[in-house]
Design a protein around this nucleic acid. Structure first.
Lengths: 203, 203
DNA sequence: CCTACCGATCGGTAGG
DNA sequence: CCTACCGATCGGTAGG
C-alpha cells in the first residue's frame, strides 16, 4: 500500500528512506568531499535532525564505503560485460573504454567521490577497494598488451597507456553536463576512439 | 652565517621555518586531503605545538591558498614558456603537454592537492583559481583549434580533446615514482606523444 | 522521528 | 617557542 502522506506544511514530519540518505550523501560528498561534509548538512537537506539519520545508516564511514564499493563493483561488472564475447583487443579496448567513460558521464557524483575520497576509507575496506581498482587497471593493461603482441597496437608501454586512458575518462565526471551539447553516449564513443589512438591502432 | 644548531636530544627546541611548515602541509594535504588534515598533525611532525605554527602562517586556509596559487601560476608560466617562439600547433601542443606532464611527475603533492582541494578554497580565491585553470584549458584548446583549422589535426572537437589531454596528464601524479623504471622526462615525452595521437596528428 | 547530551577534536587567540 | 584556554562543531548514543 503506497503512502499517501504528502504533507509539507509546518506540521509535516519528514519521511526519509535509506535511499534518500545515500542520495543526499552522494550529492554533498561529491560537492565538498567526505571530510568536508558534516552529517548535520545531510540531515538539514532531508529536513530531519542529525540523530535521526542513524535510523537509516550505521555511520558516516559506512555511507562512504557503500558508495565506493557499489561504484567499483559496477565498474568491474561493466568491464566484464564489455569484453565478453570477443577476443579482439580492438573491440575489447574500445568497449571497455566506452562503458567506463559512459559511467563517468551518467554517474558523475559517484565517480568524483571514488576518485577523491577512497583513501579516506579505514582498513580493511581501503585495501579491498584499492584491489578492485588495480584489478580493473590490470585488465585494461592486459587487453592493450595482447594488442601489442599481435601487432595491432603500437604503443611502447601498456601500463602507461592504460593509466592515461583511465584517467582521461575520469575527467568526464568533472565537466559533463546532461543538458550540454553532447549526450553521454556521444562523449563515451569519442573517448573510446581516443583510447584506440593512444595505443596507435591503425584501422 | 649558517645555523650550527643541530640539537636533537630531549632538550632540543625545534627550529622551524615557514618553508618547513609549507612542506609538511604539502605532504599531509596530499596524503589525507585538506579537510582530512589537522594542524596538530602538521605541528607534531615538525616537533612543535599547534599554536607555534602561527608564527609561520596566518591560517590553515592560507596554507592551501598558497599551495594552489603557486602551483597554478607555475603551470601557466610553464605553458607560456612552452609555446613561445613558434606558431606551429604541433610543436606547441607537444611542448605544452610535455611541461604539464613533467610538472605532474616532479611536483606530485602539489598536483594532487590542486586537483582534490581547490574547491575547498573560500571566495574570492576559489573564483580566482578556477579562472587560472580555465585560462590554461582554453589556451590548450586554442592550440588544438588552430591545428584543426590548418588541417594538421583531425579531431572532431577541440574542447573534448583538451580536457582528455589535461586530465590524462594529471594521472601521472597518482602513479609516478622517482625510483621507478622511467624518468619524469621520459614519461612527459611519452604523454606529449599521446596528446598528438588524441588530436590525430599524422607526421 | 525527536530532545538532550556526550567526549573528542577542531582552528585559533591571549599572553608570556 | 611555550602553556592555558576559547567557542564551535564533530560523529555518535541514550532514551523515548
Amino acid at each position: 500500500m503506497p503512502s499517501t502522506d504528502t504533507r509539507t506544511g509546518p506540521d509535516a514530519r519528514a519521511v526519509v528512506t535509506s535511499e534518500a540518505v545515500l542520495d543526499t550523501a552522494l550529492t554533498l560528498f561529491a560537492q565538498r568531499g567526505y571530510h568536508g561534509t558534516a552529517l548535520s548538512q545531510i540531515a538539514e537537506i532531508l529536513g530531519i535532525r542529525t540523530p535521526s539519520l542513524y535510523n537509516h545508516m550505521r555511520s558516516k564511514q559506512e555511507l562512504l564505503e557503500t558508495i565506493v564499493r557499489q561504484t567499483l563493483d559496477h565498474v568491474l561488472a561493466d568491464f566484464h560485460a564489455a569484453v565478453k564475447g570477443t577476443d579482439d583487443p580492438v573491440v575489447q579496448l574500445r568497449e571497455a573504454t566506452r562503458v567506463y567513460a559512459l559511467r563517468h558521464a551518467t554517474h558523475r557524483r559517484e565517480a568524483l567521490i571514488v576518485n577523491r575520497d577512497t583513501t579516506s576509507l579505514p582498513e580493511p575496506a581501503l585495501t579491498a577497494m584499492r584491489q578492485r581498482r588495480r584489478e580493473h587497471e590490470r585488465a585494461i593493461r592486459s587487453v592493450i598488451a595482447r594488442g601489442i603482441e599481435s601487432g595491432t597496437f603500437a604503443v611502447g608501454n601498456a601500463g602507461l597507456a592504460s593509466f592515461a586512458i583511465l584517467e582521461m575518462s575520469v575527467s568526464i565526471a568533472r565537466w559533463f553536463r546532461e543538458d550540454g551539447p553532447r549526450t553521454a553516449e556521444q562523449v563515451a564513443d569519442e573517448y573510446a576512439e581516443f583510447a584506440l589512438r593512444i595505443v596507435r591502432y591503425r584501422p
